[in-house]
């Protein structure tokens, strides 16, 4: 049986842990709202962009067009872009993303492909470094950034297109968590290069007419595709941010509740021990007095 003092110390320590988790939960709640709004505001652009790409892809002759949409014609070297959060204390959020990444790496390696990894966010890098450290070819640190901007997505996109142009890989896949709602973030693998028009993009009926392109179809594709890539990365970054805040909020809410339960049971045991000691002392005094 621990002494009374030990009980008191433990209660104090759990209480201060609870204060921290409570504070983190409130911070996450506040940030979540902003992150969700940002993710929502970016959605019209992304969906419009997707339908424009779908239009172009349906118009472009199969097999032709710029490399970003047609690919290199090979399927040997795969680049996985693993997007996680910079900080932890968010339950299984990063673990789930990394789990999907690991499964993907195993699947590709078994198929005899070469795998390269670029990590975005510290947590994914930490988790993958142990097992697949030799495969990691790059890491993008987002710790210094306060908010997700079009510019930060552009930075990630540039790094990917630069590597692609240098012939470092044939296929690029992005692994991130789609924000479904507060409690659910779905780890998703999304092929970036060669660009695929999303299957759910609204198809446009041209009613027999043909597109007029200015300056030319190729020139438009060439400027549009890098933009499409950074748009996808931007929405992925925003979803990651919203998902992280959501996951952290839920995780910290649970932690706060657990700490509360723990304090309750510790307090109960402390009170019992204290009462037992008082009773014991009383018995000693009374039996001492009776002996006289």
């Amino acid at each position: 049986m621990p002494s009374l003092k030990e009980f008191r110390l433990r209660i104090v320590s759990v209480k201060s842990t609870q204060k921290i988790t409570k504070a983190l939960q409130m911070v996450a709640t506040a940030k979540l709202k902003r992150a969700q709004e940002a993710a929502q505001a970016a959605r019209p652009y992304a969906t419009r962009m997707a339908s424009v790409i779908a239009n172009l892809a349906s118009g472009a002759a199969a097999g032709g067009g710029p490399k970003l949409i047609a690919g290199t014609g090979k399927d040997d070297v795969h680049l996985l872009v693993v997007m996680t959060s910079e900080r932890g204390l968010c339950g299984g959020f990063n673990t789930n993303i990394v789990k999907l990444a690991r499964a993907e790496i195993r699947r590709l390696q078994q198929a005899g492909k070469t795998v390269k990894i670029v990590t975005v966010g510290k947590k994914g890098n930490d988790a993958l470094k142990r097992l697949y450290g030799s495969l990691i070819v790059g890491h993008i640190d987002r710790r210094g950034e306060r908010a997700v901007t079009a510019e930060s997505a552009g930075g990630v996109a540039r790094q990917i297109t630069d590597r692609f142009e240098a012939g470092e890989f044939d296929v690029a896949t992005l692994i991130f968590a789609r924000f479904k709602n507060l409690l659910t973030q779905i780890p998703t693998a999304l092929q970036l290069i060669p660009a695929r028009a999303p299957a759910d993009a609204p198809k446009v009926d041209l009613q027999g007419a043909r597109y007029i392109y200015e300056p030319s179809e190729e020139a438009i594709l060439e400027t549009l595709l890098p933009r499409y890539l950074s748009t996808q990365l931007l929405s992925a970054l925003l979803e990651t941010e919203a998902g992280f805040q959501g996951a952290q909020m839920t995780a910290m809410d649970n932690a706060t509740r657990n700490a509360g339960d723990m304090i309750k049971s510790l307090q109960l045991r402390y009170n019992r021990a204290r009462q037992a000691q008082i009773t014991k002392e009383l018995i000693e005094i009374i039996s001492g007095a009776e002996a006289l």
Binding site: L56, L206, A209, E214, P215, A219
Partner: peptide, 19 residues
Amino acid sequence: PGVEGEFGVLPKHAPFMTV
């Protein structure tokens, strides 16, 4: 403002894409 000149779009314009 298109790269190859300003243009106006009215209803029922032909399919057209520009930078």
